[in-house]
């Protein structure tokens, strides 16, 4: 029998699929299942999906959409999602504006400098994320470094209230995620064929025009990759708004946290998580189709 024999090629495709199934699909299905349940005070704190009648027979489906109705009806959830999307979007744009020149300079730096520059970008990761966010508290708070510095040079007489505001959240997100924006940008810009820029100049484009017409469109994959890489986790960010944000910083991550931990309402928390995933993934899927269509 000369049947189909699995080879390396098939294994190579199966590996990421298995990874995705194991670490995304299965957990997602569990969350989906919980989102259809009812919160109860028990271990675990939600009703079972299948209710087995006493004395045998077919089980009844215990699924309900109540939690989704709550998510859609109570404007808190919509608002905190919109808020999170807005903060993440603004942060992403700011990051892009900072990261692009940095990545550009790195990609154009002499070849023997680049490893050192790359290292400098990654270096902050060697310190715990939490410590770095705490460090920002020390910088931004009323009695912090920034205010002391500004007051000592006489730029301000009253401390700026940055800590516990959306400003601090933006600063924290931009700072924490910046490397994830720089690296994909650097990768695309470094690969950019410089003779294309010479060709543009030769055809009459001054540097700024060739940047807009050649460099920028060709670095679009890096821009998209970097933006997705920072935008999506920033939307769900919990630690930064919790530590740096103020009372009016309501982001979806915090809302999920409250429902899950404070209210032990796992089904509602799961429903929010599923909704958030749909809101984030659906446009991406459309975008992908748009790009390929």
């Amino acid at each position: 029998m000369t049947g189909w024999r699995p080879g390396w090629r098939e294994a190579a495709i199966l590996l990421p699929l298995a990874w995705l199934a194991l670490f995304f699909l299965v957990p997602f299905l569990i969350v989906l299942k919980i989102s259809l349940a009812e919160p109860i005070l028990a271990q675990p704190p939600y009703s079972p999906l299948l209710v087995w009648p006493e004395g045998g027979g077919w089980p009844a489906l215990g699924a309900r959409l109540d939690n989704y109705l709550v998510v859609l009806q109570d404007d808190l959830y919509v608002r905190s999602l919109l808020n999170a999307l807005r903060i993440a979007a603004v942060s992403t744009v700011v990051m892009l504006l900072i990261a692009y020149p940095m990545a550009y300079a790195m990609a154009r730096a002499p070849k023997n400098w680049r490893p050192a520059l790359l290292l400098a970008v990654i270096l902050p990761f060697w310190t715990s994320f939490l410590i770095r966010v705490y460090a920002w508290i020390g910088i931004l708070k009323d009695e912090g470094f920034l205010n002391h510095a500004l007051m000592s040079v006489g730029l301000i007489d009253q401390p700026l209230v940055i800590m516990n505001t959306d400003w601090a959240v933006h600063i924290g997100i931009v700072y924490s995620y910046l490397p994830f924006m720089i690296l994909p940008l650097y990768a695309t810009l470094e690969r950019l064929d410089l003779t294309l820029l010479e060709a543009a100049a030769d055809l009459g484009a001054p540097p700024w025009k060739s940047f807009l017409q050649v460099t920028l469109p060709l670095s679009l994959p890096g821009i998209v990759a970097g933006s997705l890489l920072v935008f999506i986790p920033a939307v769900g960010e919990f630690v930064i708004p919790d530590l740096l944000g103020g009372s009016d910083t309501i982001m979806i991550g915090k809302t999920v946290w409250i429902e899950f931990f404070q209210n032990a309402d796992w089904p509602l928390a799961s429903a929010i998580a599923v909704t958030m995933l749909v809101v984030l993934v659906a446009p991406l899927a459309l975008l992908r189709r748009g790009l390929h269509g």
Binding site: D193, T195, L218
Partner: peptide
């Protein structure tokens, strides 16, 4: 250009 340098 030798590589043609067409804008991809």
């Amino acid at each position: 250009f030798q590589s043609y340098a067409l804008f991809p």
